[in-house]
Amino acid sequence: MKKLHINTSINGNSAEFLCDPDATLLSVLRDQLNLTGAKEGCGSGDCGACSVTVNGRLVASCLVLAAEVEGAEITTIEGMAEGEVLHPLQKKFLEHAALQCGVCTPGILVAAKALLEKNPDPSETEVRFWLAGNLCRCTGYDKIINAVMDAAAEMRGA
C-alpha cells in the first residue's frame, strides 16, 4: 500500500504524517503521533472514547480515515488545557468525581466541550442525549452530568 502524505493541524500545531490509505485518524493519532488520549473502546463508533473534533465537528476518530483530514483542523483532549490551566470542564470533572476508571473521560470531555460551544446553556436532558454516544460503564453518568452542568454554569458566569 502506498502511503499518503497528509498535512493537518492538531491542537493548533501543524502536523504532517504519512499514513496508509485505510488507516483511521484514531490509529494515526495514537500509534504515530503519540497522542494516546483518545482511546479505542470499540473501533465501530459506538463508545465515543475516541472523540475528537475535525473542523469544529465532533466525530469518532475511529470512523474517520486519516487520509480525509488533509488541511483540516483537529482538536484532541491533549489540546484542552492551556498549559497549567485546566479547562472548566476538566476542573469540574475532578471536583465532581465524574470519573472512576477514567478511560471514557477524554472522549466525554471533548464531546462536552463541543456541546457547550454550541449550546452554552443546555438542559440536563440535552446533555444526556448529546453524550449518548459516549459510553461510561463505571459511573452511571450521574456525576458526569452534574459536572457538565456545573461547568456550563461557571462558563456562562465567566
Binding site: G45, G48, V54, R57, W130, G133
Partner: peptide, 9 residues
C-alpha cells in the same frame, strides 16, 4: 442516526 459523533459525519 447514531450519536452526536456519528451525526458529525
Amino acid at each position: 442516526i447514531g450519536s452526536t459523533q456519528v451525526q458529525g459525519r
